[in-house]
């Protein structure tokens, strides 16, 4: 068990229906449960899967069951499988010290496809987020998954990136055990590749910037 982890540590995985959000939070939850943590995951799915926002609240505690909904402004880490969803969650649950890692690939809302609403360019989202959270990271998770031939594994690439922050005890061994439970045996290999790719992307992104590596300032 990692000593000194905030109790509870509040992790939010957000995205859009169909991006594998629920699966990602299950894998993360199981990895952490393997590490001896008491996990609670609150999820929104069902009708929301049909193109709507999907959000998982993961509460990580050394010993108690927390509510499946994180209080507003109290996230410790946000993993966004979709950039605009990351912005939405940041506004509701974030603060300037939150660990924020976002995929760069947008999934356009129907209103944007139809032309009524505007989806800002990813650069605008990136700079806006950085002005709120200087340590935020953006990685091309979906592009990386496309390279693997499995675009859906963008969620696993993001798990890899989160693991690489070392904010939470998420090692490759635990990932293998947890992913094996949910992925078919033929796709475990791809899952591992995606996980590794995420770790690599994180390292590359970190090496490109002047600020020190995660973990940055930790809130009490």
């Amino acid at each position: 068990m990692k000593p000194g982890l905030k109790n509870p540590f509040n992790l939010i995985v957000t995205g859009v229906g169909g991006q594998g959000n629920v699966l990602a939070s299950r894998i993360l939850g199981n990895m952490l449960a393997l590490g001896g943590f008491q996990i609670t995951i609150g999820e929104t799915f069902g009708a929301s899967q049909r193109g709507g926002s999907v959000m998982s609240h993961i509460r990580i505690s050394p010993g108690s069951t927390w509510s499946p909904q994180i209080p507003k402004g109290c996230a410790d880490a946000i993993v966004a499988l979709e950039p605009a969803e990351g912005v939405r969650v940041l506004s509701d649950y974030g603060h300037d010290k939150v660990c924020f890692i976002s995929n760069t690939r947008p999934v356009y809302p129907a209103g944007v496809i139809a032309g009524g609403a505007v989806y800002p360019p990813i650069e605008e989202i990136r700079s806006g987020v950085l002005s709120l959270v200087p340590d935020a990271l953006f990685i091309d998770a979906t592009e990386e998954a496309i390279k693997l031939g499995r675009p859906i594994l963008g969620n696993i690439v993001m798990i890899g990136a989160l693991a690489a922050t070392r904010l939470l005890p998420l090692d490759r061994k635990k990932f293998r055990v947890a992913a094996d439970k949910f992925a078919g045996s033929d796709s475990l290999d791809y899952n591992l590749k995606a996980f590794d790719a995420g770790r690599r992307l994180f390292q590359t992104a970190m090496s490109r910037r002047s600020r020190p590596a995660y973990p940055v300032t930790r809130r009490s």
Binding site: V16, R50, G52, A84, P109, A110, G111
Partner: peptide
């Protein structure tokens, strides 16, 4: 600030 940014950068996601 985050609220104002989200209003602009996170368009509503209607169910489809």
């Amino acid at each position: 600030k985050a609220g104002a940014f989200a209003d602009n950068a996170a368009p509503r996601r209607e169910l489809t």
